[in-house]
Amino acid sequence: MRSPRTRGRSGRPLSLLLALLCALRAKVCGASGQFELEILSMQNVNGELQNGNCCGGARNPGDRKCTRDECDTYFKVCLKEYQSRVTAGGPCSFGSGSTPVIGGNTFNLKASRGNDRNRIVLPFSFAWPRSYTLLVEAWDSSNDTVQPDSIIEKASHSGMINPSRQWQTLKQNTGVAHFEYQIRVTCDDYYYGFGCNKFCRPRDDFFGHYACDQNGNKTCMEGWMGPECNRAICRQGCSPKHGSCKLPGDCRCQYGWQGLYCDKCIPHPGCVHGICNEPWQCLCETNWGGQLCDKDLNYCGTHQPCLNGGTCSNTGPDKYQCSCPEGYSGPNCEIA
């Protein structure tokens, strides 16, 4: 077999650049994923090309098998939009790539799955459409700058595939050579959905506090709520009108309100015997008056200043008058 000629994957630097851009600016990249293909086995019993010639040398006159050299087999892949009637021409609109030389006439790579040499990765940054057309071609490398490479066999497949970690196996069982391969579509990290176009990256910072479920939905951490999980859940009972919080379990009062639940107004400074319904009010309790509710309107009842059976009459805020019984006098009937 001729010395292998290595063929790198098509578009790999571009895919790395796209992945970097997506990581830095995830909101700009609407989708991100990759179409993967792995060659599993190849069977070319006679070492022939599609045109019937030998990959190298002439045929044995007896059994008609190619004798001089085995094929240097590598694969090309073209991925494009779905076609009900597949045409070989036209651009590979979803991507293209190739393997290096991975074997001779016949080989089996099932035991070495995950080997990069027999895998082609086609990254995409558009919403995966699920339906596709795939062209797979086996080629013989001439290892010659003058002699062109020659095609051994080709296969085409049109179908639908959803993103999954599971592989789907396909076979080419007609023509001079048979080969088996597997395909799958996977979303990149933080991308979800059938189109790999739903973005969700767990975070716990100013912009949100959430994890992501298997469908890419945000699940808020304990103590947080809202579409972006950036609204803290305040202390139970915290007034929704007069209290708020920036951290879970907190209850910060608005100006003019106080209390554990921010449901108590702050009265006017200096208010003595008054209450409030709104901040800075001083609504006097019964029998109290004045701007600060510090004037006693029922001095008689509060202090009972009249002595010796005198009768007390309220005459104004903090004022009274005693009517003394016979034989007593003085402001409080204290003089006998």
Score class of each variant (00 low, 15 high):
302 T>N: 01
183 I>M: 05
12 R>G: 06
75 F>I: 04
166 Q>H: 13
108 N>D: 12
43 Q>P: 01
46 N>K: 03
69 D>H: 11
2 R>P: 05
239 S>N: 01
285 E>D: 00
113 R>H: 09
79 L>V: 14
101 V>D: 01
307 L>F: 15
244 S>C: 04
11 G>A: 01
178 H>P: 08
307 L>H: 09
148 P>L: 11
271 C>Y: 01
100 P>T: 04
138 A>T: 02
334 E>G: 09
9 R>G: 12
287 N>H: 06
80 K>M: 15
5 R>Q: 14
256 G>A: 04
158 S>A: 08
206 F>I: 06
313 S>G: 12
279 P>L: 02
124 F>S: 00
275 I>V: 01
283 L>F: 03
152 I>V: 07
131 S>Y: 01
320 Y>F: 13
93 S>T: 13
268 H>L: 05
193 G>D: 08
82 Y>S: 15
188 D>H: 05
37 L>F: 07
231 R>K: 09
330 G>E: 07
295 K>N: 09
187 C>F: 02
176 V>A: 12
35 F>L: 02
141 S>Y: 08
137 E>G: 07
298 N>S: 00
328 Y>N: 09
264 K>M: 05
162 N>D: 12
226 G>C: 10
10 S>F: 13
126 F>V: 12
97 G>A: 14
232 A>S: 05
241 K>N: 06
125 S>C: 11
263 D>A: 08
225 M>T: 12
116 D>V: 12
319 K>E: 13
28 V>L: 07
218 K>Q: 14
18 L>F: 10
177 A>V: 12
81 E>V: 11
94 F>S: 05
113 R>G: 06
17 L>Q: 04
303 H>Q: 07
273 H>D: 00
327 G>E: 07
229 C>S: 01
17 L>R: 00
92 C>W: 00
137 E>V: 04
298 N>T: 02
267 P>R: 10
51 N>T: 03
143 N>H: 08
245 C>F: 01
64 R>C: 13
186 T>N: 04
314 N>H: 05
57 G>V: 14
83 Q>E: 15
158 S>P: 03
120 I>T: 02
105 N>H: 15
67 T>P: 12
173 N>I: 08
234 C>S: 05
187 C>G: 05
156 S>T: 07
265 C>S: 00
127 A>T: 09
142 S>C: 11
156 S>C: 14
237 G>C: 06
60 N>S: 07
256 G>S: 01
306 C>Y: 01
54 C>G: 06
33 G>R: 00
283 L>V: 08
290 G>D: 10
105 N>I: 06
147 Q>P: 13
80 K>T: 15
108 N>Y: 11
87 T>S: 09
156 S>P: 09
40 L>M: 11
31 A>V: 06
305 P>Q: 08
228 E>G: 12
97 G>V: 07
324 C>G: 07
265 C>W: 00
183 I>L: 13
226 G>D: 07
144 D>H: 12
22 C>G: 02
226 G>S: 04
19 A>D: 02
167 W>L: 01
66 C>S: 13
163 P>H: 01
217 N>D: 13
215 N>K: 08
69 D>G: 15
308 N>T: 10
263 D>G: 11
284 C>Y: 01
184 R>P: 02
104 G>D: 06
163 P>T: 04
2 R>C: 13
304 Q>L: 15
11 G>E: 14
270 G>V: 09
161 I>F: 15
299 Y>H: 04
277 N>D: 05
220 C>F: 02
99 T>S: 08
115 N>D: 06
236 Q>K: 05
316 G>V: 14
164 S>C: 13
99 T>K: 03
294 D>Y: 05
170 L>Q: 03
40 L>Q: 07
205 D>V: 05
151 I>M: 11
333 C>W: 02
67 T>S: 14
50 Q>P: 02
98 S>P: 05
4 P>Q: 15
30 G>V: 13
127 A>G: 07
294 D>N: 04
46 N>H: 03
161 I>M: 03
296 D>E: 00
65 K>R: 15
301 G>R: 02
219 T>S: 08
111 A>V: 10
